[in-house]
Write a protein that binds this DNA or RNA. Structure first.
Length: 448
DNA sequence: AAAAAAC
């Protein structure tokens, strides 16, 4: 297949795709679109970055355009559910670009913004609604919309929707949609619970795998640097200093840890912003926009940004803390090496994180090359476990190392205090080095 | 056990 022309898509969409410079379909698009155009259910095993949004969006929009009727007041023709507000926004913006000048209403409803404004927008009826579950339920309870006319349901990042707190909302929402519908479910992994969900929500689905599930993209150079919790900040600063012009995402395990690290790096002179669930939606959007525009080079994030965020310029992903859910490692590093570009993922591993590292390597079915430090020996791991029980793996006072601010008392952050000097940009890396890992494979073109 | 998602 050479281009989008023969997949059965509406002419106006093809025109817009050309305008967007999208010529070649990705594998999941090429395989999935013809089936969805014909009305089949779809089970897609894929992360974002494989071209998922277009894979379901283009054929769904084609069907809606072909149907031709405008939606009745408060009805929704197609519902797309996403696990984070930012992802919902991104999907909305993509679909709106695909459907430019086409007679379809595409809207987004998410938390953190005025509900009345969203309520009013829904009154006229919507062709494609992209929503986060919580806000959608709220609007449903307020009778701001009805799902009785809904013919399409898309569950994006469905494996995250299985989490407690999401799954109940999901089931409540799904119950309101007529069974006679077309359902598309996308998931990066296929745990048992997901198989069950797929079984109950899909009818005779086409199953498509964009890449082997759970496997990191081949284009991403990966490396693990063994260090201690106390040395992580200085080590990160060293790495960042070497690539000050490139975009990096740094993942922290906790919201508090993300803020703390952001403050420290800011004092050291780095251009950073933090994004996590305790920030206002306005702050979240501003941080992401500034990062996307390259005004901010380093984004410190919790797992709110682990999935879906599509910023092609991201060259580095740092797992400052290893994720406690192994799958999230794969999602996190998938923020780089996008749109055919190269990308590097570097993980910091403290003694207390050896278990996490092992389960990540097991999940991926591959070892992460060591690029610095020495794997922590069992004795060291045991010592770490004793000093800081697994539950609260917070930096211990006695462990604050070079470059790490001593743990502050609550409120100290607001007090001005002498900034520690940033490690010199050309500082010689400690023990063997913060060297960029060697690329194991050349970057291949394609993808989005 | 943490983070996300509703006010």
């Amino acid at each position: 297949m050479e281009n989008f022309d023969n997949l059965g898509l509406a002419p106006i969409l093809l025109q817009n795709l050309a305008g967007l410079g999208l010529i070649k379909p990705t594998p999941i698009q090429e395989q999935g679109i013809p089936h969805i155009v014909r009305g089949r259910d779809l089970l897609g095993l894929a992360q974002t970055g494989t071209g998922k949004t277009a894979a379901f969006g283009l054929p769904m929009l084609t069907r809606i355009i072909a149907y031709g009727k405008r939606p009745a007041p408060k009805t929704v023709r197609a519902l797309v559910l996403a696990p984070t507000r930012e992802l919902a926004t991104q999907i909305h913006d993509n679909l709106a670009a695909f459907a430019k000048d086409a007679p379809v209403r595409i809207q987004r409803v998410v938390g953190g913004a005025s509900i009345n404004a969203q309520s009013e927008k829904l009154a006229k009826g919507t062709d494609v609604l992209i929503a986060t579950p919580g806000r959608l339920l709220d609007l449903l309870e307020r009778r701001a919309l009805v799902l009785s006319e809904t013919k399409y349901l898309v569950l994006d990042e469905a494996d995250q929707m299985l989490d407690i707190g999401f799954i109940h909302a999901l089931r409540r929402i799904a119950k309101l949609i007529p069974a006679e519908r077309q359902t598309m479910l996308f998931s990066a992994t296929m745990p048992k619970l997901m198989e069950e969900l797929a079984q109950s929500y899909l009818t005779d689905p086409v199953r498509i795998e964009a890449a082997p599930p759970g496997k990191a993209a081949d284009r991403i150079e990966q490396g693990v640097h063994f260090t201690t919790q106390g040395d992580k900040a200085a080590l990160l600063a060293e790495y960042l200093s070497k690539h000050v012009d490139e975009l990096s995402i740094v993942f922290s395990r906790t919201k508090h840890g993300a803020d703390k690290l952001a403050n420290l790096l800011e004092k050291w002179g780095f251009s950073v912003a933090a994004i996590h669930g305790n920030k206002s939606q306005n702050q979240r959007e501003r941080a992401l926009a500034a990062f996307r525009a390259g005004e901010i080079k380093v984004l410190i994030a919790t797992d709110v940004a682990a999935r879906g965020i599509d910023i092609p310029q991201v060259a580095f992903v740092y797992n400052y803390d290893l994720p406690n859910v192994p799958d999230n490692y794969v999602h996190r590093i998938g923020r780089t090496a996008r749109a055919g570009r190269a990308g590097t993922a570097i993980a910091f591993c403290a003694p207390a994180e050896m278990d996490e590292l092992k389960s990540i390597e097991k999940t991926m079915g591959q070892k992460i090359p060591v690029i610095g430090g020495e794997p922590h020996a069992a004795a060291e791991v045991a010592r770490a476990a004793q000093q800081q029980p697994k539950q609260g793996r917070k930096p211990h006072r006695g462990q604050a190392g070079q470059g790490q601010r001593p743990p502050r008392a609550e409120g100290a952050a607001s007090k001005p205090r002498a900034a520690k000097p940033a490690p010199k940009p050309q500082a010689k890396p400690a023990d063997g080095g913060a060297a960029r890992p060697r690329r194991r494979r050349p970057a291949t073109a394609a993808a989005e």
